[in-house]
Design a protein around this nucleic acid. Structure first.
Lengths: 356, 356
DNA sequence: TGTTAGCACTCGACGATGATGAGTGCTAAC
DNA sequence: GTTAGCACTCATCATCGTCGAGTGCTAACA
């Protein structure tokens, strides 16, 4: 007994129906709604086979069948192989970004909103990271007595800033001078290297030792992989519409996952270099998420950094829809972060220029 | 029939018990658990009176009584008048901030966490705002070809940054020069005034007109009251433990409120100059929050800006606890934003200095 | 006059019971 | 190989009676 064409069509119909209704689907439903040209009895036989093959589960004897994780896996694999994933929604994704979003964090927040609006699932967007960005400029800006704002511009265009103390006797001009000298030293190096270089300067330059040491630790902090990153989330409340999250404990664990951004980020973060990751139910390895699926995709920046966008939803997810939305959004974000300046959409830049 | 001492004590007991159990409380419970030296029959008579006075509601004939919004109001008013609100938790609040938090947003996020941990309700923290901060310095930092990062330091220490385009022919030094000249012009003025001044310069200085105009709109954007501010939220998942939020629609409306930060901010934002605001049930005027209470408190920065911290929970809230936590946190935040530099805790600054 | 014991009454919560119907597996006929 | 038919299973739902918490009222008591 193998998996022939007809079995697959029936399985597909069952999956489609279950994704739609979230209710166990019976043989009668299939033969009626998805006119297969087969009677319910025949379907029943096939379903029995499919169950034996591990593609269907039966909650109890007198209920219909439910697709197993294995069935979804087959379904998704076929989907991915067939190349039927089209960024069909690209125009509408693009429309969402028309003349909007300036700062990186705004873009990311907005992207999460858009994804969740288009899919009706929980959307997560991680900022670009991974590759060690290289320093382009460092600039110190006086903030108050005894403290300066450090602005580091990297080749990925991302600005990291923190206030550090500095000896009060420095005025604006000397700060600028210092900034220039520092830039000369560390430009082109990674943040980590920059930290080492600056720490190394402490011996050589005897003035402002404490200041240099603060600056050194600043770079070290920024290199820390545990450093909190902004994680954008959208559509949490959408999850409440799905019956699989009717259980309070389940909502609870989902909510607290969303609340602890670190954990959420580590779950969504992609490891490999693949375009998509689809983890169905138990595959995701998170006990309390055994009947949730996680789909992620990658986007990249001009500087070669990678970011991840992801969707979390019930196992009976509209995978096809999700994959196509993620594709479109991945393209859009890559474009946004790759084409023009990282911190500005092409549109926004254009709009500003029109005023000339 | 007035409200005598004994009635009040009974009412208090009922409120206490209901806050604890969330179940209608009967006359028997009161006479036993809160030994009043009265039989249940007497309590019953008093409860009957209290109901007539509007302080108690009865879900149905054979159930106990539930405190009405009017009862909570009385309770809270007494609490506030009695001056029994003590920042009793101040030490533990302080402990939470030991050697932590550098950036303003981190402080705010952390504060929301702490409040929700200490109260077990949903906590919201709004960043300082209100007063028009005055410009101290403006500095332009080159980010990439044709774009510069604008860093404005105000007397409230808040850094607002955006990337704007600038004509490519400017190099670092001329940017610095421009920054200096701009600072000379706008230092001491509000953001709005700064915008006007810069726009006014367009006529006078003919070089870089487009750049100045971008900069002008930058200031206008920053003055926009609708400008999105970072709103910190903590403890959303805690709300699921309360039976009053068992209903899915109720969680849903709560969740979507939390998701739309703008609306959340406008609900929490304080108008007057009072230290506390307690809005009980229907008092808050938000239909879907008719059985939630909102308690807010104010903190302030050295620069005279005001921020708001707030708690959202069921009407049967532990008001006393919440008020005392908010008091402690308000003090802590005021201290944090008032004493040392706004962007740094005294601890953090101290810690860094130790390295000298 | 205020307090309390006693009692009848109300009504939601809960569990048992039975009807309903969706769906299955199996068998036999086509 | 397909399908009609049928017995069987079992979750769902409404009904019904029991249970008990809690009340209001009355009458007795200090």
């Amino acid at each position: 007994m193998g998996m022939d064409e007809r079995k697959y069509r029936i399985l597909q119909a069952i999956i489609d129906d279950y994704i739609l209704t979230a209710e166990p689907v019976g043989s009668r439903t299939i033969s009626r709604k998805y006119d297969m040209g087969l009677s319910s009895a025949t379907i029943r036989n096939e379903m029995s086979d499919l169950e034996e093959l591990g593609y269907l589960d039966q909650p109890h004897v007198s209920a219909g069948r439910i697709p197993s994780a294995k069935a979804y896996r087959l379904y998704v694999d076929q989907l991915l192989e067939s190349g039927r994933i089209q960024a069909a929604d690209e125009p509408s994704v693009r429309a969402y970004f028309e003349g909007r979003a300036r700062q990186m964090e705004d873009v990311i927040d907005h992207a999460a909103q858009v994804i969740s609006n288009m899919t009706d699932y929980l959307a997560v967007v991680l900022p670009p990271s991974g590759r060690q960005p290289r320093v382009r400029t460092i600039q110190l800006v006086p903030v108050g007595p005894g403290s300066a704002l450090v602005v580091v511009v990297t080749d990925s265009g991302i600005i990291r800033d923190t206030v550090i103390p500095y000896p009060g006797q420095l005025d604006n001009d000397s700060l600028y001078d210092i900034s220039r000298r520092l830039t000369d030293e560390i430009a082109g190096h990674s943040l980590q290297e920059a930290g080492t270089i600056i720490s190394g300067m402490i011996g050589r330059i005897h003035e402002n030792e404490s200041f240099l040491s603060s600056l050194g630790t600043f770079f070290q902090d920024r290199t820390d992989p545990k450093a909190r990153r902004h994680v954008a989330v959208g559509g949490t409340s959408k999850m409440l519409t799905y019956p699989e999250y009717a259980d309070r404990d389940r909502i609870r664990s989902l909510l607290s996952l969303v609340e602890t951004r670190d954990r959420l980020a580590s779950i969504i973060a992609q490891n490999g270099n693949v375009q998509f990751t689809v983890r169905i139910g138990p595959e995701n390895g998170i006990p309390e998420m055994a009947d949730s699926s996680i789909v992620t995709a990658v986007y990249s920046t001009r500087a070669g950094e990678q970011g991840t966008i992801g969707v979390i939803g019930p196992t009976r997810m509209r995978y096809s829809r999700v994959l196509s939305v993620l594709t479109a959004m991945g393209q859009q974000l890559s474009e946004l972060f790759g084409a023009g300046d990282v911190l500005e959409t092409p549109e926004a830049a254009e709009k500003t220029h029109e005023k000339e």
